[in-house]
Nucleic acid binder design. Sequence first.
RNA 1: UGUCCUAUGGUGUAAUGGUAACACAGCAGAUUUUGAUUCUGCUUUUCUAGGUUCGAAUCCUAGUAGGACAACCA
Length: 547
Amino acid sequence: MADEKSLNFIEEIVEADLAAGKYKTIATRFPPEPNGYLHLGHAKSICLNFGLALKYGGKTNLRFDDTNPVTEETEYVDNIKQDVQWLGFQWAEELYASDYFPQLYEFAVKLIKKGLAYVDDSTSDEMARQKGTPTQLGVNNQYRNRSIEENLRLFTEMKEGKHPDGSKVLRAKIDMGHVNMLMRDPVIYRIKHADHHRTGNTWCIYPMYDFAHGQSDSIEHITHSICTLEFVPHRELYNWFIENLEIYPSKQYEFARLNMTYTMMSKRKLLQLVEENIVNGWDDPRMPTLSGVRRRGYTPESLREFCDKIGVAKRDNLIDISLLEFCVREHLNKIAQRRMVVFDPLKVVITNYPEGETELMPSENNTEAENAGVRQMPFGSELWIEREDFMENPPKKYFRLAPGQMVRLKSGFIIKCEEAIKDTEGNVTELHCTYFPESRSGSDKSGLHAKGVIHWVNVQHAVPVEIRLYDHLFLKEDMSSIDDDFRNHLNPDSLQVLPQVYAEPEVAKASVGEHFQFLRMGYFCMDPDSTKEKLVFNRTVTLRDSK
RNA sequence: UGUCCUAUGGUGUAAUGGUAACACAGCAGAUUUUGAUUCUGCUUUUCUAGGUUCGAAUCCUAGUAGGACAACCA
């Protein structure tokens, strides 16, 4: 029996529409506002929108929702495009809501002519008061009765720049007593004498979200306009405009946005982290932004797998970060070459190995990948091992080095600890060990068995590198549950820098963005901060630890 | 004291009126030249109360709980 994957509720809608012949092919869109960087929540939306078109044979537009000139910048546009492509998707058309400004203006005029829009001179405070509350109906004001001619004249004047910011707005004339607050004569155009990142100062009036989004969908003949749950109340307005403008009926569907433990997805708050230098930019590897997780070492494949695994539904959710970590480990395990790097060095002297001599030990790059080959690791009489791989008084199930105890040096020899050398304060400064020449990796004739296997680096050939270890940005599992400032919950240890650790020589050949598994230490990715003199590696994720 | 949305293991997601399942997490064990990977097993679930039905996680009603809605933001 074929294992059919069940459909999410949006796929069910699409299949039903297709089966009913409602559409020959579908069209979706990904519509970010270029006022910040994309994050994991956007990845969910991207995978959904592009995934639908890919699955059912349709197209997806990338549309920038750039109707507010004061918050939007070209820098954001460029990065958003880069992020979408990096995730592995290609849009059919690159479009901008601002491309539709002339058309949107005509839509507004049409509404005025139908007696369905009016110019209001009230202040925003007055309008807020007249609007009522969710439990208290709104009231009409005197501007609501303006004639079509006067509205037309005033709206033209607004467009011509004859009125200052905030002095007038254009409102849809719907119902101030409507149970849905959004239907109480929503503002559809406001005056902003501001430079727009694309249209410059061509316009001084700009449409509001509700008067741009649905119309843009309609202009592009988007069949399924998919957004998050907070837009549910907007759907009624969305449909009202389409109906009264008599334009192509795109349909809006809403799904639950992504929430994850120990982080937050609010663009506003992420901007704050950046502006207040709490993190080092939008691409700080601790950020849930796509540029952040990319720099951290997450792969597009693992992100797409993650989006697939979390599903799409309508109930609020809080996804455990460990699921994301599982996805990235699963992918990196298959593609990341293995290297040995000692983070907290303890010197081992092999007393029966000829001093100054070197022999090359081949070591598998990745047994999970076919044809990954081997690299040579220089073995010698002085090695670095991890300090925590030695214990003077080990507990019963400690498999590593202790006085008189043996371990296997991965891809090397079995060694036995003969003596721990200490300084005057009793700290272990180095270990004197002997090795068993017959235990050479790959051709072991020693008959010895060492349960523990540890990584190592030759002192003579060690390459110093910098390591950056990351932990959750926040200490609180559910950041939506806090009622105080989110900055009170920052994890003070979210970044730990190890300025100089010892890597095997092969590491020097790494390139920016390359993924590695540093044996027993985790998955790492070379950071763009790397220079010829000093390579920098970010820990993407730890290895699963069942010690 | 409104309208709308939602309610399935610890966390997600399925089951589309017919045996509640999958993944993650957790816990055991096997294998292992990474205490990784791989493999095996285990723990844990339909918000409540009525109703419809031979049969309800699913349909209906009410309650309860959580979320959204009162920007010239999107």
